[in-house]
Design a protein around this nucleic acid. Structure first.
Lengths: 108, 108
DNA sequence: CTGCATCCGGTATGATACTG
DNA sequence: CAGTATCATACCGGATGCAG
């Protein structure tokens, strides 16, 4: 029933249903405003191209804000918008679940 | 800091950080135990192969249970395990966020 | 008839090198 | 430093085939 195109979960997934996007959000939630290189270092295994692509999509969806400083060397900062901040409860739940599940893993 | 390999969010993302997996979980949470064809119909745009692949991964990770009935015509049912059920709060938050955000969209 | 494995063509992704 | 361009590769979707 909620599986139409107006399904809330489907809508959410269309915006952040991608591994890298969640990890980008995690970084911004935890570190606040960050530069491109900072985010890149903080996410293990992502390529520059993929990071650029995902950042641009998140920006286009109004989840984060991209601020370019016209300097040399170039400096670009990314920060969460209000819409991005509103995703925090989801990230929190994922964090809580991960903690619980890692505890169980340790028991094994 | 939490960005090591033991980061809870990264762990969670590795298990369900995929668009189709979240939608599969949504279906099972909403409809309970379902057959392959039911899930396929319920998720718009997914191919049979992708559905099979994602279901197998979720099964391998212990999130859902696959039960084959040796009948003609064949029948395969998928249901959530206890581990899968424990993901519900995450789905709930995604649902809540989607509802809120769709409301804002309507205003536009 | 259902569930799913295989083959093939298009698309997305990763590694590297290069630019402003 | 923050990307872009290029190319090799891996992944994905669609059609087909097959077993039960």
């Amino acid at each position: 029933m909620p599986c139409d195109k107006s399904c809330p979960i489907e809508h959410t997934v269309n915006l952040i249903g991608h591994k890298w996007k969640v990890l980008i959000l995690r970084n911004l939630f935890h570190q606040g405003t960050q530069r491109f290189g900072e985010i890149h270092k903080g996410i293990h295994g992502i390529s520059q191209k993929m990071l650029t692509q995902q950042l641009r999509q998140l920006e286009a969806d109004g989840i984060l804000c991209r601020k370019v400083y016209p300097e040399v060397p170039p400096k670009v900062e990314y920060s969460l918008t209000a819409l991005g901040e509103s995703l925090k409860p989801i990230l929190d739940e994922m964090n809580k679940w991960g903690i619980e599940h890692l505890k169980q893993r340790d028991v094994d």
